[in-house]
């Protein structure tokens, strides 16, 4: 006669999949990291070029000085827009409906920044600072221009978020993705301002 006994085999239960962050947020973080390195390369090039300037004179002789005081207003507008987006972030936790007002204000301030930068470009071109006039002009238009393009793209992102909020379909990950890009644009500007204008 054969006896059948039973023994216990322990099999672990499959762990539930955990999502540490939305894929859009991770994608935007990785994109911003690459953009930071891109701007770090440009800023590094400016720093080295300035360090080799003849007699330590910068801007080079005959080139106009960049408008430090006027640009301070643009800088303040951009920083304020970042604060307003932070307000939108906290208001979203209460209700997605509450993000509209700070979002619109942030977008308007961002658009004002880009508009004022455009006006500054027109004035500097009239004063003789062109991309071909010197390394100073080339770096200025290249770096400020690329930053301006990023600001326009970020405003586009905020406009998309606003449209979703107006439709009542805004989700947290969409807001956070647009926020990361806008904070990148906002926090990068003081670095560019400090490096190029002074």
């Amino acid at each position: 006669m054969t006896t059948v006994t039973s023994t216990s085999a322990v099999r672990p239960e499959p762990r539930p999949k955990k999502k540490i962050a939305h894929s859009g947020v991770i994608g935007m973080l990785v994109f911003v990291l690459t953009e930071i390195m891109f701007f770090a390369g440009l800023i590094s090039a400016v720093t080295i070029t300035r360090s080799t300037a003849l007699m330590n004179i910068w801007p080079p002789p005959g080139q106009p000085r960049l408008p430090v005081e006027e640009t301070l207003i643009n800088t303040a507008a951009l920083l304020l827009s970042g604060v307003l987006l932070g307000v939108a972030h906290f208001r979203f936790k209460k209700s997605p409906e509450l993000v509209k007002a700070p979002l619109i204000a942030a977008m308007l301030l961002g658009a004002a920044f880009v508009g004022l930068q455009g006006a500054e470009w027109v004035a500097l071109l009239a004063q003789g600072l062109t991309p071909q006039s010197s390394a100073h002009g080339a770096f200025f238009y290249l770096i400020v221009g690329i930053h301006g393009l990023h600001a326009l793209a970020a405003i586009g992102g905020l406009a998309y978020v606003l449209r979703r909020a107006q439709q009542g379909r805004l989700i947290a990950s969409e807001l956070h993705t647009a926020e990361i890009f806008w904070y990148f644009v906002v926090l990068l500007w003081p670095v560019i301002y400090g490096r190029l204008y002074f």
Partner: peptide
Amino acid sequence: PPREVVSEPS
């Protein structure tokens, strides 16, 4: 995590 105990004939 909780473990599942499975009886197997031997």
